[in-house]
């Protein structure tokens, strides 16, 4: 006999109720199978691949390693919760992945997008090693990472240009 539990999660700014769940379920399972948010991918369920990366409060974590019930009272941000500036459906990181050819099969993409956002929020001008370290927990079997690193560098460059224009003000 397995007891079930019901609890509330705050996901992408919305209160969501998880009903009749087994206590041992991971946050990844709850997001995908109970809340209909399949953006976070399930590849290994052991913390190795990073395709399930989500933001839990202010930290990037593998959703597969977090007990869903333990995420109560915290704020969860998944790839579905990312929005671009000025109503763009894509964030600048997502757009750079497309522009630079950083997406092939796309399975790793949501996790990598979360990792690059997390890095740039903490460190807007990472050097190459910091960039590599930041994506060291995300496996990609297609791209060989070159296009992903290029995408991240493009975001840094574009944000740099944008803030330059802002500081120069209107002509």
């Amino acid at each position: 006999m397995t007891e079930t539990v019901t609890y509330e999660l705050m996901v992408n700014g919305e209160r969501r109720v998880v009903e009749g769940s087994w206590l041992g379920e991971s946050l990844l399972f709850a997001l995908r199978e109970r809340l209909g948010l399949p953006g976070s991918k399930n590849a290994c369920e052991q913390g190795e691949c990073g395709s399930c990366s989500v933001r839990l409060d202010d930290r990037l974590v593998c959703a597969c390693l977090v007990l869903a019930a333990d995420a109560q009272g915290r704020s969860v941000t998944t790839v579905e919760g990312l929005t671009g500036a000025d109503g763009d459906a894509l964030t600048d990181v997502q757009r750079a992945f497309l522009d630079e050819g950083g997406v092939q099969c796309g399975f790793c993409t949501p996790g990598l997008v979360m990792s690059v956002h997390d890095l740039l929020d903490r460190n807007p001008t990472p050097d190459d090693l910091e960039l590599r370290e930041a994506i060291s927990g995300n496996l990609c079997r297609c791209t060989g990472y070159g296009r992903i690193l290029a995408a991240a560098r493009t975001v840094v460059a574009r944000r740099g240009e944008a803030s330059l224009h802002e500081s120069e003000g209107p002509a």
Binding site: E3, L23, A69
Partner: peptide
């Protein structure tokens, strides 16, 4: 958590030490 995901452990109760 890895063992729980793989079905090798099925906890009947859990204590959240992080709280």
């Amino acid at each position: 958590m890895v063992e729980v995901n793989a079905g090798r452990r099925r906890p009947s109760s859990v204590v959240s030490l992080t709280r």
